[in-house]
Design a protein around this nucleic acid. Sequence first.
DNA 1: TTGTACGCGTTATCAA
DNA 2: TTGATAACGCGTACAA
Lengths: 343, 343
Amino acid sequence: MAAGDRTTIQDVARAAHVHASTVSRVLNGRPELLLKLETRERVVAAAARLRYRPSVLARSLRLRRTLTLGMLVPDIANPFFPPIIKGAEDVAHERGYTLVLCNTADVPEREATYLRVLRERQVDGALIASTRMADATITALRADGFPFVLVNRTTQGTRDLAVTVDNRVAAGEAIVHLADLGHRRIAQVAGPHTTATGAERLAGARKALLSRGLDASLVVEAEAWSEVAGYRAARQLLIADAPTAIFGANDLIALGVLRAAREAGLRVPGDLSVVGFNDIGESALIDLTTVHVPQEEMGAAAARLLIGALERDPIAERRVVLAARMVVRGSTAAPRLAALEIA
Amino acid sequence: MAAGDRTTIQDVARAAHVHASTVSRVLNGRPELLLKLETRERVVAAAARLRYRPSVLARSLRLRRTLTLGMLVPDIANPFFPPIIKGAEDVAHERGYTLVLCNTADVPEREATYLRVLRERQVDGALIASTRMADATITALRADGFPFVLVNRTTQGTRDLAVTVDNRVAAGEAIVHLADLGHRRIAQVAGPHTTATGAERLAGARKALLSRGLDASLVVEAEAWSEVAGYRAARQLLIADAPTAIFGANDLIALGVLRAAREAGLRVPGDLSVVGFNDIGESALIDLTTVHVPQEEMGAAAARLLIGALERDPIAERRVVLAARMVVRGSTAAPRLAALEIA
DNA sequence: TTGTACGCGTTATCAA
DNA sequence: TTGATAACGCGTACAA
């Protein structure tokens, strides 16, 4: 059945002694489509007997829609994304859609290639979870009228569909948590400033620091949202005059911070408190305090938003902002007195 | 461009003052297809100007192949799979294929649905990483001549294409490692016996235990390949007469063992040594000794095998067995004397 | 060297 | 209530 010997609608038509169009009507038409019961039964029986499977290809060609969604992520192996994909996949499957997975590796060229592939394949729309994708690329999509939903990122001054959390508020809460513990020297390992998410978390944290009368200038920017980048950045922070607490702009970065701290002989949370962002699976394992982001829900909401836009005419909402709440674990605690005195 | 206003090959033909078939030849034909250079240029220019994107749909319908692969995994959120998917996706992308992701949630019904969907979509083949999928289902695929490659699992007595590691040997090495440390009471939390992988690891471990003259009957089977299942099983093991070492059939199970040990007040590796299998990302973080399985390579190899089978006539190899090697970390160490004495 | 004609498998529309 | 026809967009054998 994989090769040329497909059973087509013609075969069924022949077997049921009707015309192909009748078969199509029986199989897809509204139930109240005025068909003689006997004909209907004959067709259904023939289809079952021949194990007829309609060709989605031919149907899509005719219907001008593929019931297929593209899902662009920068890196499937990054633990932040699988739950998002899962949520999206669940909803898509439930609504009869299929997901084409695109791992962009955060390489602009590859993003472009994939966008082209997706459109050649005439996917009905795309879920874009690439933080890095240039606004220009997205602008082009928008201009072409290609339906898409942004996941965990936004674009400046547009009405693009998007599902996010309130990064500013959540980052602020992370800072407040540390400040409440008594920390005075709180540093940040920020995400790449080229990403909307990075900028937002930085801004939120900064605002919270200032409102507490704390120094908001202890910032090193990680060059990527990765453990390695977090590690490198943290090393710059953990030299002389080290902070007593560090807010990592995401959990991977925080993991890098923890590694740097370990290498520097610092005890967490004894000498240093660390907070992350996202609450990926690893965080619970290593007892990292972080901001919980409902990843699966995020993916599901994005898929719902996209499918809704594809199937309904009036779009219900343009932006979904999910709640993010702090999860306090062992990586944060009151700083030691000695550390405080330094400050 | 998302909606009806697609540029078709006809548009290009008109613009270049040639027939559509000529456009097709220029764009896809072998270079040595005898075409006047000037015509060729005119067509290429027109195509570029109109931003022509061939319809993969129409092409697939005509060519009877979609350059699409199905990828079935039981759970994307299980950290074992993302690297596999990534490896597969990389190779697929490189060779012009697209990956359709299917999360079966280990539900037989959903597997069946997906298999149907994949065939209606006429994917050229599938990568099957569902451990649980019944051999019967697979037999049906084989009977239909549908191309597929098994990933990290095999089927009994068939010549199905598969990429695996040698579970027996690797599980044996894990046991030997523990025995060499001096452990005498080594228990197993085995994977579900309904899975080939589970059976193989159990057999390999058992053999190694016996060859060392050790008791091979300390086995509890986890009802799934999950942390929770590992935790539940371990609780049965950690009562009276507890073992000094436990081999978990995969890392998630081992994670569950660790949690159970923590709850039981046991120190790892002081009171209990633990070994896992797979070396998922989490393992390094929590210092788990385990058997490294090259997941990304596994996915890549599977994709290569499948694409090879699809594109070449003679199949190069039917089974690829990747090397798995032990990674010794902090979760194993010589047992305390007291523990040995009990045994 | 290029054009003609046809078919891939569906479904919508019109006619009967 | 059902059949015939056309069209979705493309590739290719054959003709010119």
